[in-house]
């Protein structure tokens, strides 16, 4: 097991390296120049060229790459071209904290409601409750984030003034104050994931409930609760965990749309903005971070399998 984990962690190095090369050349291939974005739309080409030079952007791309990669190996991701003297690591970390909070909240909501509604639907298979849950979860999978987010803002913020429509307060401003800003975005994020988890849980649960060992358990005279929650649910969780792992990794890469609607300074927004302004070092930093997140979260998911299902071995 330890060997396996170590092996996976070492595998990170070539993956990151490949991603790094790929991203570096892709973003230098797309048209655009950070100097032009910085100087404004009315700058002349002469000024843009001069400014590119002071930023070191006039060097050939392979040389820029060599400089960048040798710094990255030393753990130095460089400075943002846009934000006054701020290191890429600092900029990304600041945004990462926000994304992490939002993701954790969203995933907790999704797991909680997803599994509960999924189990309820399965137990009441083909009854009214099941149908209602299925309709709602179908909607949850299909409703786009941006629409749901705006509707929540319309009702909870503008109509009833209960929650702030946009913005963000860090946890250091107090848990309550900070949470208020996260409620609507977390619901927006969680709605789709909840539906996914609920549907997954339901179909797996139905399958498990039809299996022999459940019939045996029922025949033994075990209570319904024991059968459903102790024997059935545990075996439902493996595929559900895969889904949870995927959505966690997905969200950690930044919930771009949700962050945009609620103006939350997370990784997704940072990425979009950096692409528009061609802040090369920041884009590279974020992509490497997202790649690392995927690898790490997949690893954690795999380890969780072992904990939940002792039959699995690596």
């Amino acid at each position: 097991m330890t060997n396996y984990i170590l092996k996976r962690i070492f595998a990170l190095i070539p993956i990151m390296f490949l991603v790094g090369i790929f991203v570096f050349f892709i973003i230098h291939l797309i048209p655009g120049n950070p100097a032009a974005m910085m100087l404004g739309p009315e700058a002349t080409q002469e000024e843009i060229d001069a400014f590119s030079k002071t930023m070191g952007l006039d060097k050939p791309v392979p040389i820029q790459f060599a400089e960048w990669i040798s710094n990255v190996v030393k753990g130095d991701f460089g400075m943002s071209l846009f934000f006054q003297g701020q290191k890429v690591t600092k900029v990304v970390f600041e945004h990462f904290k926000v994304t992490l909070t939002l993701t954790i909240l969203g995933v907790i909501l999704a797991i909680l409601f997803g599994i509960i509604t999924g189990v309820i639907a399965a137990i009441n298979h083909n009854h009214l409750l099941d149908r209602v849950i299925m309709v709602i979860t179908s909607a949850g999978v299909s409703i786009p984030n941006f629409w749901l987010g705006l509707m929540l803002v319309l009702f909870f913020s503008i109509r009833f003034s209960l929650l702030p429509p946009a913005g963000f307060k860090p946890l250091s401003a107090g848990l309550g104050a900070s949470l208020r800003y996260f409620i609507l975005p977390a619901i927006t994020l969680a709605f789709g994931q909840t539906s996914l988890i609920a549907r997954m849980t339901r179909s797996n649960m139905l399958e498990v409930l039809r299996s022999d060992y459940i019939r045996t358990a029922k025949a033994k005279g075990l209570s319904k609760v024991m059968v459903n929650y102790k024997h059935a649910l545990k075996n439902v969780l493996i595929p559900v965990i895969t889904i949870i792992g995927l959505s966690f990794a997905n969200l950690m890469g930044g919930a771009v749309v949700t962050e945009q609607i609620f103006n939350i300074p997370g990784v997704g927004r940072l990425l979009i903005k950096s692409v528009f302004t061609r802040d090369y070092p920041v884009i590279e930093g974020i992509i490497l971070y997202i790649a690392a997140m995927w690898v790490i979260i997949n690893l954690v998911t795999d380890v969780l399998y072992v904990i939940i299902d002792p039959r699995i071995e690596y």
């Binding site: 803002v153 913020s157 003034s161 429509p165 913005g167 945009q260 609607i261 103006n263």
Partner: peptide, 12 residues
């Protein structure tokens, strides 16, 4: 649209 709602909702 978010610039609008953020003021209309009283946040800014």
């Amino acid at each position: 649209a978010v610039r609008l709602t953020s003021v209309e909702g009283g946040e800014y």
